[in-house]
Design a protein around this nucleic acid. Structure first.
Length: 324
DNA sequence: CGAATTTGACCAAC
DNA sequence: GTTGGTCAAATTCG
């Protein structure tokens, strides 16, 4: 898949994207500062809008493979999950051209199919996006594993999760988690659909309508707070009670499976990798990481790692911001 | 004992 | 015929 940008345009495009990202990260830092103040909501709202605007702009630019600054893995309306993408990392980005409209209507909940085991539409019209991370990341949502499968040409099995409130609240969010690299460990999480559930166990302020796609890029996470908790003995697990439990389960079970998948790494590696600590230990490191990523002269074979870091930055942890 | 996970079967898409 | 996503019975866990 070649990017057909003219070279000069591509260069300027990269610069634009870079500036947008810097601006967004600065806005996020400002948001972080404001989050710890008692000020009226208006400035917080404005900063949130700024972040959202920048995120949306970056999303519109939808950086594709071949672009060194490719950082966003928000993919819209992907028609299918190409396993080769997950397995080889060759086609990292689900591009818009993959978003062929299908005559298929959405999928697993069609009434006439409801009672038919295994019935679903492989081609999805749900919005999907993916995140790579050196660790198993907590997105703060309650997930329940419902399947695991070895994927053709993949070293590691794919784990299937659905929202715990699928039946309670009809939430259709699902995600797939697959290890894509052993050393350093790298996991790809592919989210399908948005949570329509409201997790009543969350802090009341946490009850956000996450049904729209924009929240995923715009909701803010205070990394300062997150850092504090991640530095604890049980990273990611220190702040949410019910969710914590469920995600803990997920991490442990997935971790055990992954341990079987590769005996190279110890299980603790999955919880706190050096990569992650490097990221989380230095809040200003956000920018460090950003610039180092942008300036990276890695070729595209390492795009997965670049993804992971950048996606960590962009991670939608609207739940984490109340972690402290 | 209820809830969560595992795992083989099912089946539409390819 | 193969593949991948989902289901649900069996199993495990707390």
């Amino acid at each position: 898949m070649e990017v057909s940008w003219p070279e000069n345009l591509s260069t300027s495009r990269k610069m634009v994207i870079r500036e947008l990202m810097v601006g967004r990260e600065l806005a996020k830092q400002l948001q972080s500062v404001l989050a710890n103040t008692d000020g009226s909501g208006s400035e917080k709202y404005l900063v949130m809008k700024i972040v959202k605007s920048l995120s949306d702009t970056l999303f519109i630019l939808n950086v594709k493979e071949g672009d060194e600054v490719s950082v966003f893995s928000q993919i819209q309306a992907v028609s299918s999950l190409d396993s080769s993408c997950l397995d080889t990392g060759k086609s990292e980005e689900y591009s818009q051209e993959n978003c062929k409209s299908t005559t298929t209507t959405t999928t697993t909940t069609l009434p006439n199919k409801k009672n038919r085991r295994g019935c679903y539409d492989r081609r999805r019209t749900l919005q999907t996006w993916k995140r790579d991370s050196p660790t198993l990341i907590n997105d703060g949502q309650a997930w329940r594993k419902y399947g695991q499968k070895m994927i053709h040409n993949a070293k590691y099995p794919r784990h299937y999760f659905r929202c715990s409130y699928k039946y309670d609240q009809g939430c259709k969010a699902t995600k797939l988690v697959q290890r894509i690299q052993a050393n350093p460990p790298l996991y790809r999480t592919t989210y399908l659909g948005h949570h329509t559930c409201k997790d009543l166990h969350k802090h009341p302020e946490l009850i956000l309508d996450c049904s729209g796609p924009e929240e995923d890029t715009s909701m803010f996470i205070s990394f300062d707070n997150t850092n504090l908790s991640i530095k604890q003995e049980q990273p990611f697990l220190s702040s949410f009670s019910p969710i914590k439990h469920e995600y803990k389960e997920e991490i442990i079970t997935l971790d055990m499976n992954l341990e079987q998948e590769s005996k190279v790494s110890s299980s603790s590696d999955y919880f706190v990798s050096p990569d992650l600590m490097e990221v989380v230990e230095s809040p200003p490191g956000l920018m460090t990481m950003l610039s180092s990523t942008l300036e990276s002269d890695h070729d595209h074979d390492n795009e997965d790692e670049i993804y992971g870091l950048m996606e960590f930055v962009d991670f939608n942890l609207d739940d984490f911001q109340f972690a402290s």
